[in-house]
Design a protein around this nucleic acid. Structure first.
Lengths: 170, 170
DNA sequence: AATCCATAATTGCAAATTCATGTATTACTG
DNA sequence: CAGTAATACATGAATTTGCAATTATGGATT
């Protein structure tokens, strides 16, 4: 409780005094530092996917856009950038490539001509379907030997963390 | 149980039959797909750190190397690349920069002249200490409102996942 | 409705990243 | 122990990325 209050204060105070009391990384230990572990895990996950993606002519941003669109079609570019975890400028170029390959199309928004709504094409869906088994396999590998209940608790915590760190309401 | 067995088989079988039975991403839901959530969370975490790092003349790879070295001094370049989650070639150049700034030094390994062992300098430690409060603040924000017990369980699951996905024994 | 500000998306450009390769050294194998 | 393979790290070249600026449109204020 003390701890949480202190962290709460940290966000809004000058910290020259408080800093001295922060636990050091060495005290926490790399193997107990959640951001470190998550970076290591996702670094591997993404790197191993990248090899497979390259074989299919895809990049990480292209694949992420396709993945999100397979679930949420017709998003705007900026929404898609948030969901895909890709910089908007990078996404814009990834979309150029996807359009050129016929996997997505840009449609004008009827109400606001600044925005374009992105739709997957049939070919785009097919491309993602071809990719999905690889992703599912990596996913299965990650959670191998971890019981269903633990998985559920883990995902629930991830959802809380995302709510804490995200800037957008989705 | 059935589920786990099936996933287990997936790793070692031809999957043209099995693929048809895979749950689709849309069925799982983006908000329940752990790799997606982790990418979103770390994307934000890393992006927000990057802004602060830039102000201090650091990049993500440089910061990661310093962070790891603050805990594990004297690693080889390739070990450091794994711990830091940075490509070896990228790390090599990040180390050039850190050496030029006097934050780390490369020392010859007495037993094997191919390897160089990387050590933080006092200035390097100081640089990391100056950075740590920012990292600790992001960390605190991530887990804000999440009770200690839940945090521990979360980290324990992360450790299992890392064991599942890592290629090296550390 | 003229002006000013906010937002959407793209693009120019410098810097960072990757893949492949190079060089040096060590380990293995017949 | 010669010859070949493997490993460690660095680097060249091309691609990719991210930031800032740009263009275009919409909203708000007077």
């Amino acid at each position: 409780m003390t701890r949480i209050l202190r962290e709460h204060e940290m966000a809004r105070r000058d910290m020259t005094q408080e800093d001295a009391k922060l636990p050091r990384l060495g005290e926490i230990g790399l193997q107990n530092f959640a951001p470190y572990l998550m970076n290591r895990i996702m670094g591997r996950y993404n790197a191993s996917l990248r090899a497979e993606l390259a074989r299919m002519g895809l990049t990480t941003p292209k694949m992420r856009a396709l993945a999100v669109l397979s679930v949420l079609d017709g998003l705007t570019v900026s929404e898609l950038a948030v969901y895909s975890v890709v910089e908007q400028s990078t996404l814009s170029r990834a979309l150029d490539a996807l359009v050129a390959e016929g996997l997505v199309r840009r449609a004008d928004d009827p109400a606001d001509s600044r925005v374009s709504r992105i739709h997957v094409t049939d070919a785009g869906r097919a491309a993602f379907e071809a990719l999905w088994p690889t992703m599912a396999r990596s996913y299965a590998r990650m959670f191998h030997g971890i019981p269903e209940e633990e998985r559920r608790a883990f995902v629930a915590t991830l959802q809380k963390i995302l709510r804490n760190v995200r800037k957008h309401d989705f």
